[in-house]
C-alpha cells in the first residue's frame, strides 16, 4: 500500500474495550474462566467416557472433505466411462446375425484353409467378403 495509513483515532471516539489484550481485572477474568469450565464439565465428562456404543466419534472435517473429493472423482470417472461406452455402442454397427455377416469376417487365414481365393468365392458365392471378391476378380483378369 503506497498511501499513508491514517493516524489512530482519538481514544475518546472509541468504545470501551471488553476483551482487552492486556490489563483488565484479573479476578474478573478468573471468575469468568471458572464459570466457563464449570459449565463445560458435563460435556468434558462425556468426551472422557468416549463415544457411546453405536455412536462413533464423527470424523474430522478434513476426513469428510477427503471422502467428498474422492467420491466426486469416482463419480466423474464413472460418468466418463459411461459416456464413452454409450458413444462406442452408437458408433459401432450392430452385430449381424446372418451367415453373410460370418462370411464377411473371413480373412486371409480362411483363404489359406480353403486353398485359393477363387475356391472360397465359389464356396460362399455372392455373400462372401467384398474384398475377397476383389481378389477373385484380380486373379481372373490375369
Amino acid at each position: 500500500m503506497t498511501h499513508k495509513t491514517p493516524d489512530p483515532l482519538p481514544p475518546e471516539w472509541l468504545p470501551d474495550p471488553v476483551g482487552p489484550a492486556r490489563g483488565g481485572d484479573p479476578e474478573e477474568w478468573d471468575r469468568r474462566l471458572r464459570d466457563l469450565v464449570s459449565a463445560a464439565e458435563p460435556r468434558l465428562a462425556e468426551l472422557a467416557r468416549g463415544p457411546a456404543p453405536g455412536r462413533e466419534l464423527r470424523p474430522a472435517t478434513g476426513a469428510w472433505l477427503l471422502l467428498a473429493a474422492r467420491w466426486r472423482a469416482a463419480v466423474g470417472a464413472a460418468a466418463l466411462a459411461a459416456a464413452t461406452l454409450a458413444l462406442v455402442v452408437r458408433v459401432l454397427p450392430a452385430p449381424a446375425s446372418s451367415p453373410a455377416a460370418d462370411a464377411s469376417t473371413l480373412g486371409l487365414a480362411a483363404i489359406a484353409e480353403q486353398g485359393t481365393a477363387a475356391a472360397l468365392w465359389q464356396g460362399l458365392g455372392s455373400e462372401a467378403d467384398p474384398a475377397l471378391a476383389q481378389i477373385v476378380l484380380q486373379e481372373a483378369s490375369r
Partner: peptide, 23 residues
C-alpha cells in the same frame, strides 16, 4: 479426549479475544 485442564488452558488463552469478537 475430555481433558479438563486442556480445555481450561484454551479458554484462558481465548476468553478475552472471544469477548472482543462478540463485542
Amino acid at each position: 479426549r475430555g481433558e479438563r485442564e486442556a480445555f481450561a488452558e484454551l479458554a484462558r488463552r481465548y476468553l478475552r479475544p472471544v469477548h472482543a469478537v462478540a463485542a
